[in-house]
Amino acid sequence: GPIMLESYRVIADYGKSSKYEVTLKAGDMVDIVEKSPNGWWFCQCESRRGWVPASYLEPLDGADESEEPEPNYAGELYKTTKGYKAVEEDELTLEAGETIEVIHKLLDGWWVVRKGEDTGHYPSMFLYRTGEKK
């Protein structure tokens, strides 16, 4: 069947860091054909095809928020599959195998998680759902 393309505008320059990515220039329009929940989206841009960070795109009509789930302050239990050391001050440092609560699943692949008293952003690709209830 036909593939529905969604168009997005690039908000800042992005230089690709691996061969299956596409370099972006602020103001470019890109057509997205697949959205991975880890924040990498597949774009078809004229002759170029490859993965681009969702964090550098904005929808043309500004109605992106509608597809993003609301924050869930009660939290959903996930476990870290891989450790990550915070680079930005709003990120969280965790080791592999820690149980945390996910409170907001952002489309850019950086979810807001809570560990005890601390909250911060963490890469969704390093998390898996435990299926347990608190």
């Binding site: 908000i11 800042a12 992005y14 860091s17 691996s18 299956y20 990515e21 991975s36 880890n38 924040g39 990498w40 597949f42 095809r49 490859g50 993965w51 960070p53 969702a54 964090s55 550098y56 904005e58 924050p71 302050y73 990550y84 680079v87 930005e88 709003d90 990120e91 409170i103 907001h104 952002l106 850019d108 692949g109 950086w110 807001v112 909250t119 911060g120 952003h121 890469p123 690709m125 390093f126």
Partner: peptide, 22 residues
């Protein structure tokens, strides 16, 4: 392969586009 998304976390949004924590 190009069918699989990169295995490294994507970059954070540019600072002026970052949202505050929930």
């Amino acid at each position: 392969s190009i069918k699989e998304p990169p295995q490294n976390p994507p970059p954070r949004p540019p600072p002026e586009h970052r949202r505050k924590k929930a």
